[in-house]
Design a protein around this nucleic acid. Structure first.
Lengths: 176, 176
DNA sequence: AAAATCATGTAATGGGTTACATGATTTA
DNA sequence: TAAATCATGTAACCCATTACATGATTTT
């Protein structure tokens, strides 16, 4: 069994979760994992096709009226692949954090402009924070115990922590 | 002026910082930005070539003995490009966090196996934390005030925070 | 003398983003 | 009836990782 691609991983997980079509997978990603695991249509559809050829998912045409719609479900093999991957030790988190790179290189700017790099970084995280809080607000009481919500709470507290760290650091660096 | 690629950004910054050759840039990245901004030889060398064609860097052959070595420096245009980029609002942080994706999908496993996803995530961050602390220990007193060290401290405190968050959460979920 | 490291580069491969193309259906 | 949204997909392009190739120099 070869490695699953990043998009394959989120597809299998989302199909387990209840999504059915490529479109729904994309929607689910945008609502939930987007802040740490994105996926685009341009990969979702080809991946679904490939996963079907590998026998991990099974698609059925669901022609509701004239509109094309393909519904996918995990096969037994697909469920095994998902669980197998879940049990492997996860890879280290990779990030590409442009705001932090600017903090890193801040010395390239005159001293007066340096704290702004930290404030920019804080602002980005505050924005993300607001988005995630809005998502959280839309979740009914009954669904608060799921692992997906744990990840969401992580996102909220993480963004809050980072923003506060940057603001404090920027404060320490200006001379007040 | 077209957009700079991810690798171009770190090259320009590192050249400002004092690195000179492709090899040194890669070393500097591995010692410092790697945990949030990686770069490979396979991109560094072609990018240096491209940046030279664009007039942002200037290379000079430095044949010390028989060994080939090309030393690069920022041109005035290159310095402007670096500063211009630094002043732009940074893009939001993108990450691909596999451990968190497993936390997100933890419900796909039997209840007893779920807290392990959080502990795996914590372990990954504790490992990174140890690496960064080792880097920090090697920095002389005299260099502690640089923006690069601010980013390093961020890395340390960030990894510590995430690991603790996961451990606490895993504790809350087991039934003790 | 062997191993590690300095040093530069290319080629294969794969994956991701973006833009594009198309048309049905639902909502304002 | 116009706009938004549902829904699927492809093509171009870019970029990143990895493995490979080569050889000099330094350290053990």
């Amino acid at each position: 069994m070869q490695e699953l691609s990043a998009t394959a991983k989120v597809i299998l997980g989302m199909l387990h979760h209840g999504a059915r079509s490529g479109y729904e997978i994309k929607q689910a990603v945008d609502r939930s994992t987007r802040f740490f695991w994105n996926a685009s249509y341009g990969r979702i559809y080809p991946e679904l096709k490939r996963l079907e050829e590998l026998g991990l998912v099974e698609g059925t045409a669901e022609a509701t009226g004239e509109r094309a719609r393909r519904s996918f479900a995990l096969t037994a093999t697909g469920r095994d692949a998902l669980e197998g991957w879940m049990r492997e030790r996860p890879a280290a988190c990779e990030m590409r954090h442009e705001a932090l790179l600017k903090v890193f290189f801040a010395d390239a700017l005159p001293p007066g402009e340096r704290p702004q790099r930290l404030l920019d970084m804080a602002a980005g995280h505050r924005e993300k924070l607001a988005e995630l809080r809005a998502v959280e607000a839309g979740i009914p009481e009954s669904a608060r115990a799921s692992s997906a919500v744990t990840a969401l709470r992580f996102g909220i507290e993480f963004n809050e922590w980072v923003a506060s760290w940057c603001e404090r650091e920027a404060g320490d660096h200006d001379g007040t």
